[in-house]
Design a protein around this nucleic acid. Structure first.
Lengths: 358, 358
DNA sequence: CTGAAAGCGCTTACAG
DNA sequence: CTGAAAGCGCTTACAG
């Protein structure tokens, strides 16, 4: 690269006394080369520090890479998955010219069967690589095993499934995010304050990380030697009115911190009616509903994990692996962002969700 | 794109009854084409929704784009500029294959003359595009005027110079960042609390945005109807001991908020000795020195503006403009990040600065 | 196991 | 003002 002209496959061929076709075979580990010439060529490649020109490779090859995504559909009451999808689409436009085809499959976040159905459909198309949000543990393991059997590499997004041989993972560190929530809530706590944690259990069972968020918060408070009460209520799939009632009952004068491990806006609705008294409320994700309560001051902090970037990098990870054939970083915990009324408009994810072009 | 095979320059040529050479001329607005054929070709390009293949363009062309950067050198007492540089280098590796050459010029943040010197040197090389951190207003305007005269597009990073016709700008919204600091400090304020603002004036004169940070803070407190005292001290270029003395004198029992508009670690050093009493301290930037005081709990919040991303996108902006010839978003205020002891290790910029591969 | 040739979708002189 | 040909650095059949 430094010494004047770039070296190409032709230079390697000349130096090795073979044709460029043979160099190409060595480069791609094709079998039809004698061990002797393979070694010779490999040595020269290394000596000359040769790196193939990716542009030329892609232009000459008619191979098309087919990548598939399998993520939740954006639903009326949850706009979260719009973020990762936008990021994936942005990456798609950047790499389309390289001969990438992207097929999109969506499932219903409240229906395991839709996940299974779509995953089966997907596999019949023989993808080169997959991005999957494995939110249902059991069904996901089943699916990932099939991927392994067919040696199809996959990227995990949002949720990690331990013990699987994924290519890379992009997601949050749930425990740490709860720990961070503890710091924020802790700012207002006194000796006899109370902290209220609200879990929506209907969402809980499929998503172990909601529990980890609670654990993180509790561990922070314990570390800080907080002596007050930490109460958690698990709201199951009851009627909305009933849910509202329960939350309201648990909001006391001493409640200085409210932590919603998901669907913050549902909790905020009640907290707002209860009046704001030096309370800190922390929730998750910059969704449309949540933003309303951020704006009116009910929610103080939203913890976010860059959904847009998660999507963008997931696809880029497949691209780097297959097209650039570079090593890919396996575990990618996303930065924990603290979003407030004062900075949310500058947040990239807010811009995406407002469809402002980056 | 959708209907089977992609259309290329050859298809356009055939349909227009001209050679591909002529299509190429139209595509690049070269003059040697009759108005009649130009119009005909242009219409077909539009009808067929043709988009040139960037890979093929770059492969065929021997044109090399030369981009230059002119940013402050990382100094012993300020590691900030390592961030933008890392981002630029990351972008460089991604686009090198496209025939991009990047030349790097650095100046001394405390020496206007070094800026002038390097900028003159740079211009003799006839760059295609420039990334510049215009921290010295007067000298920068002089330089940018020369760029305009030579019709060299430039990207502004970190600081914006109003009234200049920059290609794009990446940086912070200083006022808003101060406003955000107000929110954070406000969490601990009571009726009779005091807030202490520390400015380092030696740094102030070249960097108007340090003043804007203060303004932002004040405007937040005013909006919240804060009745307590807001005291600012401007530390000039006196001896370190003297500076320490002044800060210490201004730390009272009632001081519930400390805001360092720059060099937070220098202030934190004193705040730490004064003991921690329900005070919130806010500073700027995830530098090595600051991290120490974040870790030991003296600094509660650091406001950051993604220096790595600023660098990365600055270079990508030139790339998009020249190579992809897509429109580039002009103003790009960066998200205001809130960094605490609980989330800094997950911050991308921290990883960069720790040289962890992304 | 290896080489020679055509081609990917463009750009670039060169000829007219 | 326009066209035909060579070439960018690779991959891909095809022939031997």
């Amino acid at each position: 690269m430094k010494s004047g002209k770039k070296i190409g496959i032709r230079d390697i061929a000349k130096k090795a006394g073979v044709s460029i076709g043979t160099v190409d075979r060595v480069l791609h580990n094709r079998a039809e080369v004698s061990e002797k010439t393979r070694k010779k060529v490999l040595k020269i490649i290394k000596d000359l520090n040769y790196h193939p020109n990716v542009l030329a490779q892609r232009l000459a090859s008619d191979k098309i890479f087919r990548f598939f995504i399998l993520i939740p559909r954006r639903s009326a009451d949850n706009s979260y998955w719009e973020g990762p999808l936008s990021g994936i689409l942005k990456a798609e436009t950047e790499i389309k010219a390289y001969g990438i085809q992207l097929d999109k499959y969506f499932f219903n976040l409240n229906d395991k069967n839709s996940f299974r159905r779509e995953s089966l459909k997907l596999l019949t198309s023989r993808p080169d690589g997959i991005i999957v949000a494995p939110v249902f543990e059991h069904e996901s393991r089943e699916f990932l095993r099939k991927c392994d059997d067919n040696t199809i590499p996959y990227v995990l997004i949002d949720t990690i499934i331990k013990g699987q041989s994924y290519l890379s993972y992009y997601g949050q560190n749930s425990r740490q995010s709860g720990y961070l929530a503890g710091k924020l809530i802790g700012l207002k706590l006194k000796r006899h304050s109370e902290v209220l944690i609200v879990n929506f259990t209907s969402e809980l069972k499929n998503r172990p990380h909601l529990l980890e968020r609670e654990e993180g918060l509790r561990s922070y408070l314990k570390e800080q030697d907080f002596k007050g009460r930490v109460k958690n209520i698990n709201v199951s799939s009851m009627a909305e009115k009933e849910i509202d009632e329960i939350i309201l009952q648990n909001l006391h004068n001493r409640t200085r911190g409210v932590f919603a491990t998901s669907s913050a806006h549902k909790v905020a609705k009640i907290v707002k009616t209860a009046g704001k008294r030096k309370r800190i409320m922390v929730g998750y994700d910059l969704t449309e509903d949540n933003v309303l309560y951020l704006e009116n001051g009910t929610i103080d902090f939203l913890i976010c994990q860059r959904p847009f970037e998660q999507g963008y990098h997931s696809l880029m990870s497949l691209f780097d692996h297959f097209v650039k054939t570079t090593k890919v970083r396996k575990n990618n915990p996303m930065p924990l962002e603290i979003i407030t009324r004062e900075n949310y408009k500058n947040s990239l994810d807010y811009k995406k969700y407002k469809n402002e072009e980056q």
